[in-house]
Design a protein around this nucleic acid. Structure first.
Lengths: 138, 138
DNA sequence: TATTTGTTTAGACTGTCTCTAAATAGATAT
DNA sequence: ATATCTATTTAGAGACAGTCTAAACAAATA
């Protein structure tokens, strides 16, 4: 599964690999978000996908990002209390969150966080571990 | 600094210890949130503080919780993408977040997370480390 | 061609949270 | 005490991310 894809057919195949029907709008959105390591909010995707022309509606942007996250193609980052960020799902990494600017930056998890976390409550399954390091002006 | 305080004068003193001017409204809110280990949203605090009668306005609830967090008396929990939760600031612990129900539960950090995290970016200071374990129906 | 199923859409709507400008309360000076 | 200044609270308007609805559209199948 190749991330950071640009080509339309490759993108369509990638979507199918994740069980997502490829449509024009979905390919457009995937093309933007998966082009490189980045964290984009729904409104940022909205802006980039509709540069000038209007291709994808707001509802579709929100629905599509949610769908991508549910299918495991992208990851939601919950760190900014005002909005969700989306990022390509790459190797295990976590985030610095700058509380002054709202900026997100990655750091690699050399030590697997899963090694040090407790078991999930009975009947529950661990869906993921998110580590956020809040940073700010010293 | 005694958390889980109920008594009004103790609460007022606690607020002063944290550099917060004690007012009727602030003491009411502190009394609710600091009474025990719990995670409350602003709207939940709003509901509890105004049982029947109306004592504290919405604006004051939001402003006060933000003030408490800034002064270090309570902690903001960013895990639910739709709202902020507030909790008494106790020993280092982290959270299970049930993605199906939105429920938060604590787990103790026997291993200090600060031991395994990388340095903050240049000129930045680490304000805190939050670990959220997303769980859901198996 | 008709039917079914899935996707997209504009725009209304919701819920959390913030802002504003006025009223109130508390503290300080005279 | 009384006047003055500063901090706090307030109702209500407003901002903004995100969701919902019901209709239009597209694609696949009968």
């Amino acid at each position: 599964m190749e991330l950071y894809v640009r080509n339309t057919t490759e993108l369509a195949n990638l979507l199918r690999d994740y069980g997502i029907t490829a449509t024009l709008q979905r390919v457009e959105i995937a093309g933007i978000l998966l082009s490189k390591k980045q964290h984009l909010s729904a409104e940022q995707v909205m802006g980039k996908v509709n540069q000038g022309r209007s291709i994808v509606s707001k509802a579709t942007v929100y629905n599509t990002l949610r769908l991508f996250a549910k299918k495991g193609l992208v990851k939601e980052v919950i760190a900014d209390p005002t909005k969700i960020f989306y990022e390509p799902k790459t190797e295990s990494h976590h985030h610095f969150y700058n509380v002054d600017t709202g900026e997100l930056t990655d750091f690699n998890a050399d030590l697997k966080m899963t090694d040090i976390i407790p078991d999930a409550p009975k009947g529950m399954m661990v869906k993921g571990v998110d580590v956020t390091i809040r940073v700010g002006a010293a």
